[in-house]
Nucleic acid binder design. Structure first.
Lengths: 339, 339
DNA sequence: TTGTAGGCGTTATCAA
DNA sequence: TTGATAACGCCTACAA
């Protein structure tokens, strides 16, 4: 592979002139620049970005650590981040953790060693404070997305509490009081675990409705086939409505309903988190996460930290609001009684 | 950030000893190694992978260029590739082209400049032979996936012709002869464009059934809302069955059927390419692409090229077979006539 | 405006 | 087994 030295030799100039030609440096004459560019073309030369990174201590690479890229949620957010970062002149190195805190640590360390300019990640725990501190000292920018494990770094969150709140309220307004909430243990982050249940409970409290938390809220471990557990719980408490805390849970709920020959919304009402593509095909009412905004804000917050020296030192917390997308998976128990 | 020099100073050894300690070099005593590791820990030192890359001319980074990461197909394959590459000691840099040949070129050049060790990509055209040659000369391994634009590099393909062939055959066996095939122009690659139609035509030919290609095969441009066009074609030729060439086309077909109040499979039969998650929820019969195998084989072929000097020079072509996943979206016109 | 030279943090070669 | 030193390819003072 040709180097700047080769180009310099061919163009009869010095290596610094070659360097200048490739960085739109103003201290170079048009003539020289053209000469260099011509020689470079002849040799098929492009600047070696690895060498440039070493010299500049800037890699123009951002690491993205998610738990699970083939979850629709993460693949869409990955897409958004990739294209926004490209626009801003950065490239994206991805890695997944499968919700494992150890893998998360490995990935963080790898990105730290790779001298990434920044990292966007979805923490599974708050255990890696030491590593996070090390990374901050290295001057690598950090943004945590979707979960807030560390108080001292920039965060992009979705207000999950509000999500369950509006879903629950909507169900109550339609006459449902026996509502099964299915959610994930999700992570070790205490806050994150409680967001969804708390909105649910608040809605009940505000209407002075009684609620048996132990029966009506079910916490799932990560990524197993949940159908058995869902079936049992439905049989046990006979809910009139279900709130599925993620799209994967929602998928299993729909499968279970099919197996149990429960038609939606006639026999049971369903609201699902994440407005994935197939929700509209099945006419499922959803809590829509503003995925695009999450990706955009995460990218921009990160790049601001990297490029803008003047940005305030205090961590920025951006909280985005979910939306209720009304379709046809919730039955109105009031009007149907009248019939 | 601490460097090997700092560690060397603290441990009272030379930088070469530090380097050896971190590379499991055998020419180092246990004692020295421990001393170095302790010093490194104290300083929070990790080897700078950028410097290592420069020195070794090996970045341990693989570039993946796909057209569209939020298509289910690509996000699953990305996931598989990421985890396989991690297992093999490589990291994944992703970029998308939106099916644009120009963006593809930019991405190839960027990866070339970044000195990636290898590239897996889904070519949109065969236009970039010069760049491909340059990259090969650079000793960057290349694998093209899903489309075969260049004859001289390793390829992982799915036998799309066979896919439409078995789908069409199955429909014919169920009494369908007016079948609408919806497929993409997809790319400028002449071969790729014709795979799906050719299997379809072959099935008709083998049964000596007549076929009006101009009416029964519809080519779509990339990523637009196809519903209008689908609706018109259904009204025009009144097919008894539809084959959707991709999951995004399938999604639009299902939406159209809803809008037109055509129930599947009662009023119209549907088979769709790509066995995405939601296909089972809607009971759609699909042509399943062996996505995991594609990702695994692409990764392994690439890493073999990189690490195994002895691998044969002739390009490897791996063709994977699709499967018909039977569900309940095709009506048997023979048995239903009898009723 | 252009060229020279030193250094970014590693690793590899060679000598000790 | 260890240490000194010269690359890897680029950028940036500084000198010309």
């Amino acid at each position: 592979m040709a180097t700047s030295k080769d180009v310099a030799k061919l163009a009869n100039v010095s290596v610094s002139t070659v360097s200048r030609a490739f960085r739109n440096d103003c201290y170079i004459s048009e003539e020289m620049k053209n000469k260099v560019l011509a020689a470079a073309k002849e040799l098929g030369y492009t600047p070696n970005l690895v060498a440039r990174s070493l010299k500049n201590s800037k890699s123009k690479i951002i690491g993205l650590i998610t738990s699970d890229i083939d979850n629709d949620f993460y693949s869409v957010v990955t897409r958004v981040i990739e294209s926004e970062l490209k626009r801003l002149g950065y490239r994206l190195l991805i890695s997944t953790t499968n919700e494992s805190s150890e893998e998360e640590l490995e990935n963080l360390n790898l990105l730290s060693s790779s001298r990434a300019d920044g990292i966007i990640f979805t923490p599974n725990s708050a255990r890696h404070h030491l590593t996070i501190d090390k990374i901050k000292k290295q001057n690598i920018a950090l943004v945590q997305m979707y979960r807030r494990a560390y108080k001292d770094i920039d965060t992009v969150l979705v207000d999950d509490k509000k999500g369950t709140y509006i879903a629950t309220n909507y169900l109550i307004q339609n006459g449902h009081t026996n509502i099964l909430l299915l959610t994930t243990v999700g992570s070790e982050i205490e806050d994150a675990k409680n967001y969804k249940p708390s909105g649910y409970k608040q809605a009940f409290k505000e209407k002075n409705l009684s609620l048996d938390e132990n029966k009506n809220i079910l916490y799932f471990p990560y990524q197993t086939d949940l159908r058995m557990m869902i079936t049992q719980q439905i049989e046990k408490i006979k809910p009139t409505a279900i709130i599925a805390g993620t799209n994967t849970i929602g998928r299993d709920v729909i499968k279970v309903c099919k197996e149990m020959k429960l038609s939606i919304p006639e026999d049971i009402s369903v609201i699902m988190f994440d407005d994935v593509e197939w929700a509209s095909l099945l006419d499922i009412t959803t809590i829509s996460q503003p995925i695009k905004d999450i990706g955009l804000i995460a990218s921009r917050t990160l790049i601001n930290r990297i490029e803008d020296q003047n940005v305030s030192n205090t961590p920025i917390l951006s909280t985005l609001e979910p939306d209720l997308i009304l379709r046809n998976s919730v039955k109105n128990l009031f009007t149907s009684k009248k019939n």
